[in-house]
Nucleic acid binder design. Structure first.
Length: 1159
RNA sequence: GCUCGAGUGGUGGAAUUGGUAGACACGCUGGACUUAAAAUCCAGUGGACAGUAAUGUCCGUAUGGGUUCAAGUCCCAUCUCGAGUACCA
């Protein structure tokens, strides 16, 4: 009986579906007593093109692992579903008017059929579709949860918004340490309670984890939609090439930035590929540095130098440096011995963290203050204890700190702190909330500060200018009259350039001088303030302190505008370029930093900056909040309606809010999103239903949100929903989530590194904070499968120019037609292109002509009077050729089939000889005509062959080209495997029992066969655990080759063998398993136990090397000692021949490994 | 530019802790079977040189150095390819 794979595979696929073989047990169900294992694939977007052979690669790998874990006794959940909201269906709807739901359902059908044909062990009872209202109900629900939450930086987690409101009611917002919008106005509890509800809502919106904000987007008026950065190519839309402009729009955003640090930290505890972690790290973009404020000097007027009697006070730094060490020591000592009151207040200041950071016993100028908030320039002193330092100078000190340095000093007595702490706190709060006093700064200013963020505060003495982004708000304020024209012209010029232009054109250096100067906080030297578009308004503060010697961009800018480039690095030449190395840096020309290496200089300078009160240590993140609105139809609608322009959440019990029907899927004429076309899209607060727009009265019926959610909304929690997919009362039961916990193995493409995988982690952490999930990372282990590449074919084409020199001719439908007295007399179809060989192609390319072509042209012209054909080297093309137009699996072009295609119907082959296409490895894609469809492979070779071959191609994570020809190898392996079990008469099934199993006349398998089996068990088990599936396929081949040679037909060998192979080739395994007499599925048969005793060897074939080069091998007993081995080797005739009389200097013997003779 | 990954026969790729480089396949060559083809089976197959042959010698894991008795594997430098990212201060 031969191996009829089509029948076998269909039979078992039907069996699995009917018996629900792969249904995973939830808690309480039979099977849930087993340990759980959750294997997940990144679910697919069901595109119209269906699957190609690259898609199932990861699914096959995860399926093998899932099946292996079932053999190992786990309750395995291996679900599958569809990420079925998406742009292609919407585009198709716009073009054809077909509802996206319809096309999506059709595509899913194709996907399902294809997936079933490959024999995956998915638990289809858990299937989810993101576009199914029963599913997106919960996506909407999560959105509401996010809306009702804020991020408390003190507890470092998300909390319900009600906890924030109660803080506001009691003490206003000063003490709140939250992730929020910038620039929130401070208010007290009284103010809060007096605010109108609307005012309160507006304030709360600034704290919520999902919030409305004005976001700058890439607006494409022609498409009526917002485009992602990668949808824009060269400043125009990728699709259609329409112009794109920057536009501000009110959109929903997610406060993912609140989780930046936790998202970073979490990477350490998950087993994900390093490149993926790196790109997330990169994306989050944490940088440590300092905020430093530079004062703007009165514009135009340079301050007089101290020697000229100017306003700057004597350089206090010198004395600082002298007492610096003393101060520090004292401060440390005092921190160890706080007074009772100090300790109490510190506990509160530290823990309550009044949004700002306080330091205790901190040196400020020449003093040590009790508590200081450097950011807010607030000093708190507690009196009554013995001031060990400056005992009688409180008044003088306060004068200096307040009047000269711009600090506010609050004083409390010990009693106040100990007995009336609330009042103390209130005063502190009030002070923190009051607008910063203009103060009596020591330098005449107009009160403007330019804060900058720098990662290299250690290079602050190298600052020779400052650069502001052209959009910086201070630009217009500080520019002097003389520079006004130039600056304005520059600002205008940059505004015209799009973000992309600016990014693309990095080389051009441009900028303008404002005429204003800032004061260097240490040297007090004036430094010129420039503007330049290399500074981005959106990052940091939109301003930089420029250190040309240490930053290449600053260097180039300085060179271009002839600004000084002071060198502050010891022993470094900066005449050619900036020196950005950190590790080898030694600072010079920098006052108290001189001679310090990078790390020490950083510590010292940050300490100094904080002490002197013009800056503080700061950690910055590059990651921005994620925009969550899309101006599309085919996405989740928001559960949001608007009252007086303010968003209101719909009560979760009325979810889902179902996507409305629209006439057309385009934006409305006035630029509203497609949902603006919906006629029934308003919310009635009385009936709690979606009602007709005509009923909108803004009292009980309100307009609903017109945007929809982005693609990542539905995929950010689907892995948890799989745990309890049909639950209608909650997103998933706590029972289910506590049983399944998290994904044990997640397999998918690396293209999701910073999208899906970052947002999912964010939502998971949020759900964790809310106590909904037990793990704050959703996937323990993740593997990126490599792409399977296609092998494209190319054809060489010479385009022809056809002319006629007869004046009564014209071109019609690709033919040259001739007419006489309005009658068509004849029509000659002239080929438009000539398909040539590579040689001819290259000939024409190089010389502009070729003899064979000339010959053909001459012949054609002779046969067709009046026709003129010309060609040239610039009319050569090399288009992709559809690989279905090749003969079988060869590179030979099927000429007839090619000429029958529309594209080449006007072409002619130059020569009669066979043509061969050139092959090249490229991404597999429809547009490159190199797609290989798995259906055809399953038809011709079977799903088991496809599965094995996809694994056999190479390591899972690596990209590799597909070559269908190679599949014959694994296919003949399966045939050999089949034969191994069919050694009876006429190829009938034949297996012998061994005597131990009670079979009378049974045969004990040979020790070789046992050895083969057990080394296979060992290797395959190791391979699966290491996700090295390609090597286990080889191992199977070796095992079957060996067992065939050994003529093994023992059940004791063949039964365990088929379990080993079952995860890889499940259909043939089930068939052989049932033939072996089992009447249940092989899927939960226990994995064979490895027994090392079968592999124990008594001897080893030693490689005998001379000077490291292997010369011959020798079989030696493993019992021999080193000396005995040496004696045996030295006595060998080949050893004597190799040595040729020389005496070896040394003999290296590693028992069981190798012998190496040196000399 | 920066970060990460990878370079092994004609091809896909093997090679535990450094210990017989090229497993297993594809392809190719030769043979068996066949009228023939397909399928199947058998043998050979990194390169160069010597020999009728068995066999032997030399060269070989991107390039150049180094460590070691021994390097595809470890170290240093360079080149090439791929992925991600980018005026991120």
């Amino acid at each position: 009986m031969s191996y009829h794979f089509n029948e076998i595979e269909a039979k078992w696929q039907k069996y699995w579906a009917e018996k629900q073989t792969f249904k995973a047990a939830n808690p309480g169900e039979e099977g849930s007593e087993k340990p759980k294992f959750y294997v997940l694939d990144m679910f697919p977007y069901p595109s119209g093109a269906g699957l190609h052979v690259g898609h199932p690669l990861g699914y096959i790998a995860s399926d093998i692992y899932a099946r292996y874990k079932r053999h190992k006794g786990f309750n395995v959940m291996h679900p599958q579903g569809y990420d079925s909201f998406g742009l292609p269906a919407e585009q198709y709807a716009i073009q054809t008017g077909q509802h996206p739901a319809v096309t999506t359902a059709e595509n899913i059908k194709t996907y399902r059929r294809q997936l079933d044909e490959i024999g995956f062990s998915f638990d289809w009872s858990r299937e989810v579709r993101t576009s199914d209202p029963n599913y997106y109900k919960w996506t909407q629900w999560i959105f509401i949860q996010l809306f009702n939450s804020w991020y408390n930086k003190d507890s470092d987690k998300a909390e319900d918004i009600s906890s924030l409101i109660s803080v506001f009611e009691k003490e206003g917002n000063a003490g709140v340490n939250a992730a929020s919008d910038d620039g929130i106005e401070p208010f007290t509890a009284e103010q809060w309670n007096a605010f109108s509800s609307e005012a309160q809502q507006k304030i709360l919106l600034q704290y919520r984890l999902t919030f409305l904000s004005e976001t700058e987007v890439n607006w494409c008026p022609a498409l009526g939609t917002v485009l992602a950065n990668d949808e824009i190519v060269n400043g125009v839309s990728e699709r259609g090439g329409h112009p794109v402009e920057r536009k501000k729009m009110k959109q929903w955003s997610m406060r993912i930035s609140a989780y930046a640090q936790r998202l970073l930290d979490g990477l350490n505890k998950i087993d994900w590929p390093q490149p993926l972690k790196d790109s997330q790290t990169n994306w989050i973009g944490r940088s440590e540095g300092a905020m430093v404020s530079f004062k703007v000097l009165s514009t135009g007027d340079l301050p007089l130098a101290p020697s000229e009697g100017g306003g700057t006070e004597p350089r206090y730094r010198t004395s600082d440096s002298d007492i610096y060490g003393i101060l520090l020591d004292r401060a440390k000592e005092m921190r160890k011995n706080p007074t009772l009151a100090e300790a109490k207040l510190w506990e509160i200041l530290k823990k309550k963290g009044l949004k700002v950071k306080f330091r205790r016993q901190h040196p400020i100028f020449n003093y040590i203050v009790d508590f200081v908030c450097i950011e807010k320039k607030l000093i708190i002193e507690v009196d009554g204890g013995i001031h060990k330092y400056q005992l009688n100078a409180d008044a003088e000190r306060q004068l200096l700190l307040e009047q000269k340095k711009g600090f506010k000093v609050l004083r409390f007595t010990n009693e106040e702190v100990l007995n009336d702490i609330d009042n103390v706190l209130l005063k502190i709060n009030q002070e923190l909330n009051s607008p910063p006093s203009e103060g009596l700064g020591e330098v005449p200013t107009k009160g403007w500060d330019i804060p900058v963020f720098t990662t290299r505060p250690d290079t602050i003495f190298g600052v020779s200018f400052m650069t502001l982004a052209p959009e910086h708000e201070l630009v217009t304020k500080i520019t002097t009259d003389a520079q006004k024209a130039e600056v304005e012209a520059y600002v205008k010029a940059t505004a015209k350039r799009s973000e992309l232009d600016r990014m693309a054109d990095v080389k051009t250096i441009s900028g303008a001088f404002t005429g204003a100067y800032a004061e260097h906080p240490f040297t007090k030297e004036p430094i010129p303030i420039w503007i330049g578009d290399y500074v981005l308004a959106g990052y940091g503060t939109g301003a930089v302190m420029s250190v040309p010697c240490g930053d290449q961009r600053d260097y180039d800018f300085a060179k271009h505008f002839n600004i000084a480039i002071p060198n502050i690095f010891e022993g470094v030449d900066i005449s050619e370029e900036a020196y950005a190395d950190k590790d080898k840096t030694v600072i010079a020309n920098s006052d108290f930093l001189n001679g310090l290496p990078y790390k020490k200089a950083m510590k010292t300078i940050i300490y100094e900056i904080e002490k002197r009160g013009f800056g503080y240590k700061k950690i910055n993140y590059r990651m921005r909040d994620a925009v969550f609105s899309r101006q599309r139809y085919w996405g989740e609608p928001f559960p949001v309606y608007y009252v007086n322009g303010l968003p209101q959440m719909i009560d979760p019990k009325y979810l889902p809010i179902v996507l409305p029907e629209v006439e057309k899927y385009l934006p409305t004429e006035d630029g509203k999103p497609p949902l603006g076309n919906a006629e029934v899209w308003a919310w009635c607060t009385e009936t709690n239903q979606v009602v007709d727009n005509s009923k909108i009265d803004n009292k009980t019926v309100h307009p609903l949100e017109l945007n929809t959610m982005p693609g990542w909304a539905g995929s950010s929690q689907y892995f948890n929903r799989y745990m309890d997919p049909h639950n209608e009362g909650e997103i998933f039961s706590q029972d289910a989530v506590n049983y399944w916990q998290d994904v044990d193995l997640y397999i998918g493409g690396s293209e999701h590194a910073t999208g899906h995988l970052l947002y999912s982690r964010f939502w998971q952490k949020f759900m964790f904070d809310k106590g909904l999930v037990p793990k704050d990372e959703f996937a323990k282990k993740l593997i990126n499968q490599g792409m399977i590449l296609g092998t494209s074919a190319f054809v060489y084409v010479l385009l022809l120019k056809v002319k006629t020199n007869l004046n009564n001719s014209f071109l019609l439908e690709g033919k040259t037609s001739f007419k006489d007295n309005d009658k068509l007399t004849k029509a000659i179809k002239a080929p438009k292109s000539l398909i040539v060989s590579e040689d001819v192609f290259n000939d024409v390319k190089e010389y502009g002509k070729n003899d064979l072509v000339d010959e053909w042209v001459e012949q054609f012209e002779n046969q067709n009077e009046g026709m003129k054909i010309s060609y040239s080297s610039d009319r050569l093309i090399r288009p992709n050729l559809d690989i279905s137009l090749l003969k079988g699996l060869t590179d030979e072009i099927n000429k007839e089939a090619l000429l029958n295609t529309l594209q080449y119907s006007d072409s002619v082959f130059l020569e009669e000889t066979p043509y061969f296409s050139q092959r090249e490895v490229e991404k597999m894609s429809k547009s490159k005509y190199n797609v290989v469809n798995p259906d055809a492979i399953c038809q011709q070779y079977g799903a088991d062959s496809l599965r094995l071959y996809e694994m056999f191609l190479g390591p899972l994570e690596q990209a590799k080209p597909w070559n269908t020809a190679g599949i014959t190898g694994v296919h003949s392996f399966l045939k050999k495997l089949w034969k191994l079990y069919h050694t009876g008469e006429n190829g009938s099934f034949y297996v012998t029992n061994s005597p131990l199993e009670g079979g009378v006349g049974g045969v004990e398998p040979s020790s070789e066969s046992f050895k083969t089996l057990h080394k296979t068990i060992k290797k395959v088990e190791e391979d699966i655990e290491n996700f090295s599936f390609n090597t286990s396929v080889s191992t199977f081949m070796i095992a079957v080759n060996e067992l065939t040679a050994e003529k093994c037909n023992s059940r004791a060998i063949l039964e365990p063998l088929i379990i080993l192979i079952s995860p890889y080739a499940p259909h043939i395994a089930e068939e052989l398993w049932s033939k072996l007499g089992h009447n249940t599925s092989i899927s939960t048969a226990p994995f064979p136990e490895f027994d090392g005793s079968y592999l124990v060897e008594s001897s080893k074939t030693y490689p005998i090397s001379f000077n490291g080069k292997m010369r011959f091998t020798m079989d030696l007993s493993l019992d021999l000692t080193k000396d005995e081995i040496e004696a045996a080797v030295m006595a060998h005739e080949k050893t004597i021949a190799q040595l040729a009389g020389r005496t070896p200097k040394k003999v290296i013997i590693v028992p069981g490994k190798i012998v190496n003779i040196v000399g």
